[in-house]
Write a protein that binds this DNA or RNA. Structure first.
Lengths: 330, 330
DNA sequence: AAGACGGACCTAAACGATTTAGCTGCGCTT
DNA sequence: AAGCGCAGCTAAATCGTTTAGGTCCGTCTT
């Protein structure tokens, strides 16, 4: 049998009314400092924790935040990390994290469990769940910009994707590469689109020919290779590649190998997403560390701020740094 | 402004009392079939969804399940998948999933948010959060057996690790390997320990010399190589390797390559955990598909059954199949 | 000295669902 | 005709918290 102290218990112990206890513990005015201190001490001693259902019922809030991830887990461990970052940050305010299974099924959209706000990590433009959530009149924070044609978010947490991209490309050039290419897995996330835009802009500035390939996580190696036809020709092929996603980086490395290339020497390779894998690949792969835990925590913190205030005119913005982790591959 | 239908609204619409509506919607006796049907229809039309706080308050339940993951995300995408499996299954019963940030910090243990039960995926024997949760008097389902020395779980969902291991080893033998080895990343999960036990038993049966190496996700390639000293010697080295974790499989493949081996020919390689990575590695890596989504769903389903019944004498057990996905590497 | 004021505290009414005890009316038995 | 049982329903209590609207009492103002 689990015994829990209720607010009424505390009130009895302290010899005051429920109301006073509530005011005292929530740091609201109307209680003398002496009484407040006494109540707070009693609360700590008895291990009082407010009943979330009671509070939720009264406040017409659920005390929960919904987290929505893209259905295709392209970045592997990234989402686990981001999720734990969100969970940790929310815990500090006694909010709970509700995982929303991504559903392209519009029938389910209305069936989202009730929450006080949403966090969308990497919202994809082709995801109906994303538009469904943005349509609701609830606070939403997007980790990575929301697709342009959908509703507006209340807040946006971003990585400096354009800067990271330029940094990679400049590094390629510094290491002697003349013909850098970009390989993408999708064009439905703002992340991927920003990589591409920054890449194209950089190529234009440098008066270099741009080569962008779109492959897919579902392609076989043969299909991917067909997509990259001619890219790795010794004379005029690409001599450096920036790839989106850690899965695809390892794959491209394998393909390069079978073509007789030396990754890190005859062709430079950088992954747009870091992961433990990058570190231990042979050779280790240079990658952009998106810091998923901090990123997730930043989303949660921004949302918690927005929960207590009216919807801002313009989405609130935060940036989480994404340092380039330099390794041998490029 | 969000309008929600309450139970009282339905009662007014149907011209009956709150009690009748509640009884009708929860399929409890005491309501005529005609009335029940009428109420159910009204509920559907008005999109009624019970207020979780109200229900939780009255029933002394929270309506939430806590999910605890190991702090080291060894298996990468595995946990994201498992988490989504859990979330989907819970949603069907209108339960919500609460992510518990793993905390070795014992101070935080008492501060777990209140839930009706826990799911521990891959409980590690060195994780204090795990023991903290098992000590509580709440239903707990472990995905993968709990460590032997901690408290008992109410339910256990397993993969047939021993069988999978034997299947891999038999396959090695059928493909001509004579000196199979096992590489582990840790010995704190039952999964890893069962792989090792099954491997040792198999070697004893076959009168083969056992070689087990313990490496770490934090080791550099040099350290890992030191751990495997002599393993890949041409004449008496291992000619087949079963590795735990997808990260480590790719890494071993890289090491083998630098040693001049042909993965899938001079040395066979199988990963104990499948992932998209395995499919697209060059060469594609044979792997055990632990079916994380189904596994997570099974955990949730088992827990939901246990929630409504008293604690069983012996932990309830479920097994989720783990087919071997045969590819070129071994 | 009357009145205004404000600080500290309390009462009571919500919030929405579930549950229990009890009521009504009908049909049946004796 | 009285009694019983039962189906079908209702009223009211309950869960724990917050908050609007009080009361009381001491102090300050004019």
């Amino acid at each position: 049998m689990i015994v829990t102290t209720t607010l009424a218990d505390l009130a009895r112990l302290a010899g005051v009314s429920n109301a006073t206890v509530s005011l005292a513990l929530n740091n609201k005015p109307g209680v003398s400092e002496a009484t407040r201190a006494r109540i707070v001490r009693l609360a700590q001693e008895s291990g009082y924790r407010p009943n979330r259902a009671g509070r939720a019922l009264r406040q017409a809030r659920t005390g929960a935040i919904g987290l929505y991830l893209p259905s295709s887990a392209i970045n592997y461990g990234y989402y686990t990390e981001a999720t734990l970052g969100v969970a940790t940050a929310l815990q500090d305010q006694d909010l709970s994290l509700l995982m929303l299974p991504s559903s392209h099924d519009s029938a389910q959209l209305g069936a989202f469990p009730p929450v006080d706000g949403f966090i969308l990590i990497e919202p994809h433009s082709d995801d109906r769940g994303v538009t469904g959530i943005l349509r609701q009149q609830l606070p939403v924070v997007c980790g990575d910009r929301p697709p342009p044609d959908t509703g507006q978010a209340w807040g946006i947490v971003e990585s400096p994707n354009r800067e990271s991209t330029r940094q990679v490309l400049d590094r390629f050039m510094a290491r002697g590469a003349k013909r850098p290419g970009l390989v993408l897995l999708e064009r439905v996330s703002s992340w991927a689109r920003e990589l591409e835009e920054a890449y194209l802009a950089w190529c234009a500035e440098q008066r270099l020919r741009a080569r962008v390939a779109l492959t897919s996580i579902h392609y076989s190696n043969e299909q991917t290779l067909a997509e990259l036809r001619g890219w790795f020709h010794r004379r005029h092929g690409a001599d450096a590649v920036l790839v989106g996603g850690d899965g695809i980086a390892v794959r491209i490395a394998g393909i390069l190998r079978t073509l007789g290339h030396q990754v890190g020497e005859s062709v430079l390779l950088v992954s747009g997403v870091d992961s433990p894998m990058m570190q231990f690949h042979t050779p280790p792969i240079t990658a952009v560390d998106l810091q998923p835990r901090r990123f997730g925590a930043a989303c949660a913190e921004l949302l918690m701020e927005l929960l207590d205030s009216p919807r801002p005119e313009q989405p609130a913005r935060r940036v989480v740094e994404a340092p380039l982790v330099e390794r041998e591959s490029g």
